[in-house]
């Protein structure tokens, strides 16, 4: 009797404090995720209410699908370029903007502005820049590089996505690196100064190793956003020209909602999950290890 009463009391506290969050979280994230694994094992086409369990045959189809692998490799390339350039630019900005020059606050805020605006809007703005403004500039100044729209060139179109993403995210990651630089123990840097270390030595030997935690965070965020990018892709290139920029999210979207092959689309989405999880976990694991050793 007593235990039953205390159980009811506990249940009440649970329901008051954690009930709504738990229920919504389970019904929006966990249940669809698990149901999605099941769907990927069926031949559901999105319309018919009847569908059959077909085992792993969707996964087999996906593994043999050349378009899927093209799209996947394209995404890996895009993510690689973005992670490298975003962090380079962001760290350089952060380093310059913590060196005590005037107007630091305004400059920081200015570089952050692109992050306030959604990928769709940014993509549409840059669509105009690449297809009109730069082409006009190239033609009037006789610059071969810009005379034809990069968006129409399969070799260059991926770079438009990289440029926009670097432009967009470097301001955000800059703030993360600034947080790391500001919280760095001043004594260490002063000691290095007294010992006669120059700027370069200070950055490579002292600052970068101490900044490992900021790099873990910013790389984690860039990796995740990179693999999941959709808005900019849709608004800027829409996968074209000739599917040369169809990144994995867009590929999954088109497979499921346009080609109506939901089962196959969901298998691709699940493969995407496995890969993103594996890559981000590996990255965090190695970065944490590096952090401890340094």
């Amino acid at each position: 009797m007593d235990t039953a009463k205390s159980f009811l009391k506990k249940l009440r506290t649970f329901l008051i404090f954690a009930g709504p969050t738990t229920f919504v979280f389970l019904s929006v994230v966990i249940f669809p995720f698990i149901f999605g694994i099941y769907l990927s094992l069926t031949n559901w086409d999105g319309i018919a209410s009847a569908y059959r369990f077909i085992g792993f045959s969707n996964y087999l189809t996906v593994f043999q699908d050349q378009f899927f692998w093209n799209s996947f490799l394209l995404t890996v390339r895009y993510v690689l370029y973005t992670v490298v350039f975003v962090n380079l630019v962001a760290f350089a900005l952060a380093y310059l903007l913590t060196s005590g020059i005037k107007g630091e606050k305004v400059l920081r805020a200015g570089f952050f502005v692109p992050n306030l605006i959604g990928g769709i809007i940014l993509g549409l703005i840059w669509h105009f820049v690449f297809s009109r403004a730069l082409v006009f500039l190239g033609k009037s100044l006789n610059l071969e590089l810009f005379s034809y729209s990069w968006l129409a060139n399969p070799q260059k179109a991926l770079w438009t996505l990289v440029i926009v993403s670097v432009w967009q995210y470097s301001g955000y990651m800059m703030l993360i690196h600034i947080a790391g630089l500001v919280n760095m123990p001043k004594e260490v840097i002063e000691a290095a100064l007294i010992d006669g270390a120059n700027d370069g030595q200070r950055i490579i030997r002292i600052i970068l190793p101490l900044m490992a935690p900021s790099f873990v965070v910013s790389m984690f965020l860039t990796l995740q956003r990179g693999f999941m990018v959709y808005d900019v892709n849709l608004a800027l290139t829409n996968g074209g020209p000739f599917r040369s920029t169809e990144l994995i999210s867009m590929h999954v979207y088109k497979k499921a909602f346009l080609a109506q092959e939901y089962g196959i689309g969901q298998s691709q989405a699940f493969i995407l999950f496995v890969m993103v999880a594996a890559i981000t976990l590996t990255q965090v694991y190695f970065s944490k290890k590096l952090e401890v050793e340094m």
Binding site: V28, F33, L39, Q224, M228, S249, Y262, A269, L272, T280
Partner: peptide
């Protein structure tokens, strides 16, 4: 760690 894309279809 779950990308939104892995949930959107069943959702």
């Amino acid at each position: 760690l779950i990308p939104f894309q892995s949930i959107m279809i069943p959702l």
